[in-house]
Design a protein around this nucleic acid. Structure first.
Length: 492
RNA sequence: GCCAAGGUGGCAGAGUCCGGCCUAACGCAGCGGCCUGCAGAGCCGCCCAUCGUCGGUUCAAAUCCGACCCUUGGCUCCA
């Protein structure tokens, strides 16, 4: 079964053919000027699942995800806290947090997380290469890409050059040859206008200064777009397989990446462009500048990683998705069902020995059908929603088996659990087994104790007393379920 | 204005590339039954859609073609 992906470059779904032994994957990462929100995490999650699926399918994946740590907004925050003395201090602070959240959301680590500030020499090399080739020119210490020298300019976003408005801030426009030209190198550090605007917003009249680097043209800073080209070429290759990024970056960012990269090397920059749809709240893009965001930190606190992932996996990567309390509640229901069934399967499996003779062909069939359907869905442009539906159908099969059989099918349950672990765990990054530590163990023992008392009350017919105990546990986030084999419980 | 994505049941959201198995998937909410001291969970079943509008192609269209309306995103920092 072959993987097909929707390529924004062509607008078509195409069969995926990697160029080499390794799949080269670049994810257009975050500008670390603030705490990330759920919109960012949506991109990361889909990128994570794409990387996981490629690996699960047997590919070796080289996964590069950058941090933009040189940016006007970051510079504008210098001094906001005593320990934020430089742009790098601010960036480091947020990078550390992002890494922490990524761990919290159970992302598989990328192969490398390059930062702009560590690739200035590569950026300068690339800019020099573009000047030599006649694709870029210097003006007052700044360097601009001349869009008229790149015939394919606009091929990703279908823009016509004469329809385009000027890029960048107004001050630099006068020195450009064409309005659509964009900066590769900016003389003199942060543009005064830009920094004023952010500074005003953030901390009154302070005048923070962005870091500058020496270059053949001026003491200055790299333009925004050039970094991705430089880092992609440095850590992957001139031609990569897959470039993943948010839909809001198609133009100008990705368009410019293509122009500068392909003008410099003469090779195709990326074979497949995957764009993730944006997360919306009440009909609007979730965005730090719109003040309608829910931070990853707050979401982890409130919902936990599994519910967040389940939420994201309810929609394909390319579609937009709406965040709301209702949609999160639904994700919670869906996750709870998966988790409950998983644990029911484990318990049932533990209760029979491996040599048991029971065989449930329905269950075994469901296992293989699940894997088939899941695989087909993922190979159809990473259709996570359909893949999740396949997993869901397995929960029904497992529950039915447990309900209908007095003795369980050990091998069948074993296979089901392995399927949950493989598809739900390895591919979707869901964690069925919550980490237990000493506190949780002790708590569990105490809950068992309470339940023993409650059972005694029930047997004595003191249902009021029994219900009080159940309510008391429930108030503390412990959900009790009675069954024929006695009560079970779980921490919510 | 230009470019892109999308408009499917109360909500959410697949299917649209390669027209027929779509009398439209997995769900959430709701309803009924089984189970239960009760509740929950689970199981079984049910309710709700002619797929933005109009027109065309076809034996056959949610799926192809055309026009129009609406939503979101981009054209300034942005996942």
């Amino acid at each position: 079964m072959v993987l097909s992906v929707t390529n924004s470059l062509t607008g078509d779904r195409e069969e995926f053919e990697p160029t080499g032994d390794e799949v080269l994957l670049y994810v257009c990462g975050l500008t670390v000027s603030d705490d990330p929100h759920l919109g960012h995490a949506r991109l990361w999650t889909h990128a994570d699942v794409i990387a996981r699926w490629l690996a699960f399918s047997g590919y070796d994946v080289r996964h590069v995800e950058n941090f933009t740590d040189v940016n006007e907004k970051i510079a504008a925050r210098v001094g906001e806290r005593p320990e934020w003395e430089t742009e790098a201090d601010v960036a480091r602070h947020y990078i550390e947090r992002v890494i922490e959240y990524m761990r919290g959301l159970n992302f598989q680590r990328a192969t490398v997380y390059p930062r702009v500030s560590e690739h200035i020499p590569e950026i300068i090399d690339l800019v020099e290469m573009l000047i030599e080739a006649g694709h870029a020119y210097e003006a007052n210490g700044s360097v601009y890409f001349d869009v008229t020298t790149f015939e394919d300019y606009g091929k990703l976003s279908n823009q016509q050059l004469d329809e385009l408005e000027a890029q960048g801030d107004p001050d630099e426009r006068s020195e450009k040859r064409n309005p659509a030209d964009f900066a590769l190198w900016k003389a003199g550090g942060v543009a005064p206008d830009a920094i004023d605007e952010h500074a005003k917003h953030n901390h009154g009249d302070d005048r923070p200064t962005g870091q500058t680097w020496d270059s053949p043209w001026s003491e200055g800073r790299p333009g925004w777009h050039i970094e991705c080209s430089a880092m992609s070429m440095t850590h992957l290759d001139d031609t990569i397989d897959i470039h993943v990024g948010g839909h809001d970056l198609v133009f100008p960012h990705h368009e410019n990446e293509i122009a500068q990269s392909e003008a410099a090397t003469g090779d195709t920059f990326a074979n497949y462009w995957l764009h993730t749809g944006l997360l919306e709240t009440k009909g609007e893009k979730m965005s730090s500048s719109l003040d309608n965001f829910f931070t990853v930190e707050a979401a982890l606190e409130e919902y936990g990683p599994n519910v967040i992932r389940t939420f994201y996996l309810a929609t394909e990567y390319g579609s937009k998705q709406t965040f709301s309390e209702e949609s999160m509640a639904e994700a919670e229901e869906r996750w709870d069902r998966l988790e409950r069934t998983y644990h029911a399967a484990v318990e049932a499996c533990d209760s029979v020995d491996a040599t048991a003779k029971t065989e449930d062909s329905d269950l075994r069939e469901a296992v293989s059908e699940t894997t088939e359907a899941f695989t087909a869905a993922m190979n159809a442009d990473f259709n996570v929603r359909e893949a999740m539906a396949a997993l869901r159908s397995l929960t029904t099969a497992v529950n039915r088996h447990i309900e209908d059989h007095a003795t369980y099918d050990y091998q069948g349950l074993k296979a089901a659990i392995e399927t949950f672990d493989g598809l739900g765990g390895e591919v979707f990054g869901l964690q069925f087994d919550e980490a237990t530590d000493g506190d949780v163990d002790l708590a569990s023992e105490l809950v068992e104790l309470v339940l023993d008392v409650r059972e005694a009350e029930r047997e004595a017919g003191n249902y009021d007393r029994a219900d009080d105990l159940r309510d008391a546990l429930s108030d503390r986030g412990i959900e009790v379920q009675d069954s024929d084999d006695g009560p079970t419980f779980r921490f919510e």
